[in-house]
Design a protein around this nucleic acid. Sequence first.
RNA 1: GUCCCCAUCGUCUAGUCAGGUCCAGGACACCGGCCUUUCACGCCGGCAACACCGGUUCAAAUCCGGUUGGGGACGCCA
Length: 493
Amino acid sequence: MSTSDVRVRFPPSPTGYLHIGGARTAIYNWLFARKHGGKMVLRIEDTDADRSTEDSIRGIIDGLEWLGLDWDEGPYFQSAYAAEHAAAAERLLAQGNAYKCFCSKEELEARREAAVKARADYRYAGTCRDLSPEEVASREAAGAPYVIRFKVPRGEGGVAFKDLVYGGIERSYNDIEDFVVVRSNGQPLYLLCNVVDDIRDRITHVIRGQDGLTNTPRQILLYRALDVEPPTFAHMPLTLDLNKAKISKRSHGEVVAVQFYREQGFIPWALVNFLVLLGWSPGDDREIFSPEELIEAFSLEGINKANSIFNYRKDDPKFFTDPKAININAHYLRTMPVAQLAELVKPVLEREGIWDAAYEGKKRQWFERTLEMTRERFHTLKDFATLGRAWFADDFTIDDKARQKNLLKHPQLMEWLPELADRLEALPIITPEEAERVARELAETHGVKPGIPVNGARAVITGQIKGPSMFEVFAHLDRDTVIRRLRQAPEYF
RNA sequence: GUCCCCAUCGUCUAGUCAGGUCCAGGACACCGGCCUUUCACGCCGGCAACACCGGUUCAAAUCCGGUUGGGGACGCCA
């Protein structure tokens, strides 16, 4: 097989949002396709009609697009191929690979419950497996509803396959029950639809979560019955929470949704970079990858077999998601080309109503310099509009700690700060050097350490307790703004 | 309960397939120091793991068996 024959698929069911676990599956598929010059197919598994609305589909696609994961074909919709699914079921029936089962749902459920109660193993007993054609015909004629079950081989032997992550997997026939492929209402089930779709889409590699591992032997049986060579399988470990439970929106909330990261000011690629590391490693110490580097480094062999844990603590005051994710995002924030960062900050400021069109015009340089000065201590794009608000707008609020520690502690600042304003105003042009000189002179005049007036100025000018060198700030910010905010200092006391 | 899978620092992981170079390396988080007008960045240092028991071997995180623990599947969901 030439490498360009690789075809993978990402088949989400529409849920209205992209789950980070799903995103991780998409990422691995995408990387594998890109690495081998293959194609990725997006297929929406919308057979469950009540869950599939236009909005719920949109949510998935939005998430993928935001992450920058592109696909080569699709989106295809599973529901569009109902006729093919039904035809496959007919074929299985005609070939004797499947049979009609008239057992009632209630009856089966009762048996299952009894088995659970008796702590026994439950499996369909095969009651209808050997019904005579006459019997089948008469029940059908009587209008008895039936499902179609796959006829799993009986006796010795089993299904074996080589998983690209887990290695050899084997399951004996005896452990596989005659599973249902078509509902009593005539609708084929996922197991069959999925196989039929993968055959039609000529999928060569199925890369999916480990929760699909037990489906694989049954699906291989389906491939065989349909006389098609099964694809290669690669199952990836799951992502769990700190209690080793599956992460879900129901129990963990928005943190599991990709959209949440967009709202929180994540850089899309940073999230991809974080997610790919959750269960995969290049085999060396690298952790930060450009898309090209990641495609180059990626391989299914690097996927870990053990489940990984998404290190998220609900209500953690310091980290709103896995600390490593935030760290990686912060890394990109402070190292990416500033022009590129500007593109990402723009919508954030726009949303807050503090964007100035001149930032793309004559204030472009000033804007980019501002980003450079502030990004060192920010973690998300949102920080530019919150912690960094004073750089772009007058409606910032002063941090309480900054007010307590750098202002109220030194009541004389009520006079010193306006005095600093006077001294700065007297300068023909405020340079960092000149600003430092006048600030130090002022401190000396009053016999205090320079840090006192300087940090007081930081509080009233930036609203923060921390930030870049204030001498740089005096010179960088609009002269009138600096002087005005210093003169307003007494208002904070 | 049955079947399948897994097991290295708090978390993500390297090392396991080809046993010795590993009294186990990196990253995040945490703690300390340096730098500094502040904080961050950066740099330096610290804390911290081979689940347990047995076997094979001159030698085991690495191979084998068992135990324990965890996860997944067991739907007329996808």
